[in-house]
């Protein structure tokens, strides 16, 4: 097995067929990207002169295991005036505990900058 051969669920992408979909055997997790694939794409981005794109793919890899609603909730928490610095720090802790270290760093940095620039919840 190499990159992109299996979905987030671990099901080989070759098993994702029209027939399987019609049988109801396929879920969105079967056609969702696997974190290892994102890591591989990060290496490709690095090799093509874009470490920031690579960093994005690595943050993304951490988010693959979070449910859609949680991801959308975290996004909302980062919008201006939505969270106090403490709340952002708390999310960072939550993310760290789930192994999402890079996203945790992003939230910690946001907590710091938002406090300084008045972007936290009043």
């Amino acid at each position: 097995m190499s990159k992109g051969d299996f979905g987030f669920s671990g099901k080989p992408v070759t098993d994702v067929t029209i027939e399987a979909i019609r049988r109801g055997d396929i879920t969105l997790d079967d056609v969702r990207i696997h974190p290892e694939t994102l890591e591989m794409q990060a290496k490709v981005a690095e090799a093509n002169g874009n470490p920031q794109l690579a960093a994005n793919f690595r943050r993304a890899a951490e988010l693959t295991s979070l449910p859609d609603s949680v991801v959308l909730g975290y996004y909302d928490a980062l919008r201006p005036g939505r969270s106090t610095a403490d709340q952002l720090t708390a999310i960072a802790t939550e993310l760290s505990s789930q192994g999402a270290i890079k996203n945790a760093e992003l939230f910690l940095q946001a907590a710091d900058v938002y406090a300084r620039r008045g972007l936290t919840a009043k």
């Binding site: 994005n56 943050r59 993304a60 988010l63 996203n103 992003l106």
Partner: peptide
């Protein structure tokens, strides 16, 4: 930045 990663994560 987070939104960008959210898209890539899917």
């Amino acid at each position: 930045a987070f939104l960008t990663s959210a898209y890539a994560s899917r």
